[in-house]
């Protein structure tokens, strides 16, 4: 079989192997990225959560000690309670508001794109910048909000300085900031509702409320479910706006669990402890999501098909 001119080249790899290798080579950048920035930190922090690691000192294995300390720390429970308080206020309100606004924006009105853009602007602005602006608005003595209130004959409200009110102020800000994102999701869902259903309902004599109750609401439940899950996950992790607006105060009334984690990681340099907080939160979020999925099967409508 040997031929001086056209000697049959022996391939190093078979064609199939070559394809596989090429494929993985193409995937390599993404895989590397995922490995370095996703997989590695997940496992590294899991290991860390069982260690005592002052950021500038040696690591030491301590078993469950970090978790025990966390569960015994009243500040942790306080911060967890604050985060749940925030979630319970924020998530339902954000869903109701987003659905209402999306239904308004789904009408054939003049300049609807302008409105849609308007609602989306807060989502794409830097949250640090707008949080600073809102803390001016909320200022007890010179803020715009209290200025209106006193002009209308009301008294000043300590929006960010009264421990009973500060969390509500943060929720108001977050609603304003996050509304646009949820509205976009609901708009997409609403536009997926077939028009003939409404026509048929109208013929059967259904009013606007009945149309909403029996057509719109059931058909957007998958979106609602999605937003509920993501909303809870996001709300428990709330950090930025609180860090800027209240710094966790007054009297730790807005000190949420991710601030607690941040303080331990970057101000007290207890990386192992902070990792354990992170894992504890992952477990709590996972449990909440599981409960959500169970409950959701009762109300989420999935089209057969």
């Amino acid at each position: 079989m040997e031929d001086s001119s056209g000697r049959r080249k022996r391939r190093f790899w078979s064609t199939k192997t070559e394809e596989i290798v090429t494929g993985y080579l193409c995937l390599l950048p993404t895989l590397l990225y995922a490995a370095v920035f996703l997989v590695f930190p997940v496992f590294f922090s899991l290991v860390l959560s069982f260690q005592r690691w002052p950021m500038f000192g040696p690591k030491k294995f301590v078993g469950w000690q970090n978790y025990q300390r966390i569960l015994q720390d009243e500040v942790f429970w306080l911060s967890l309670r604050n985060a749940l308080h925030y979630a319970v206020l924020y998530v339902p309100l954000s869903i109701i508001l987003a659905l209402a606004v999306a239904m308004l924006l789904n009408q054939p009105i003049r300049g609807v794109n302008l409105y849609r853009t308007g609602y989306f602007v807060p989502v794409v602005t830097s949250s640090v910048a707008v949080a600073v602006v809102w803390s001016f608005l909320f200022n007890t003595d010179y803020g715009l909000l209290n200025d209106f209130l006193t002009r209308l004959g009301g008294s000043r409200v300590g929006w960010l300085t009264n421990p009973d009110i500060a969390m509500y102020s943060v929720v108001i800000f977050s609603l304003w900031k996050g509304l646009g994102g949820n509205v976009v999701l609901y708009l997409a869902a609403l536009q997926g509702v077939p028009g003939h259903l409404y026509e048929a309902a109208k013929i059967d004599g259904a009013g606007p409320w009945a149309q909403f109750r029996y057509i719109t609401w059931p058909l957007v439940t998958p979106t609602t479910f999605f937003m509920f899950i993501m909303g809870i996950i996001g709300a428990i992790q709330v950090f930025e706006q609180i860090y800027i607006m209240t710094g966790g105060g007054p009297m730790r009334a807005t000190y949420v669990v991710f601030m607690y984690m941040y303080d331990y990681a970057f101000r007290y340099n207890e990386m192992g402890y902070a990792s354990a907080v992170g894992y504890l939160m992952a477990v709590i979020i996972f449990a909440l999501t599981l409960i959500n999925m169970r409950v959701s099967s009762k109300y989420v409508y999935y089209e057969q098909g």
């Binding site: 803390s135 001016f136 200022n139 007890t140 003595d141 010179y142 300590g158 300085t161």
Partner: peptide, 12 residues
């Protein structure tokens, strides 16, 4: 103890 931004500058 209420943190008031610019309180001094505003004469408060």
């Amino acid at each position: 103890i209420t943190p008031a931004d610019q309180a001094f500058a505003m004469g408060k």
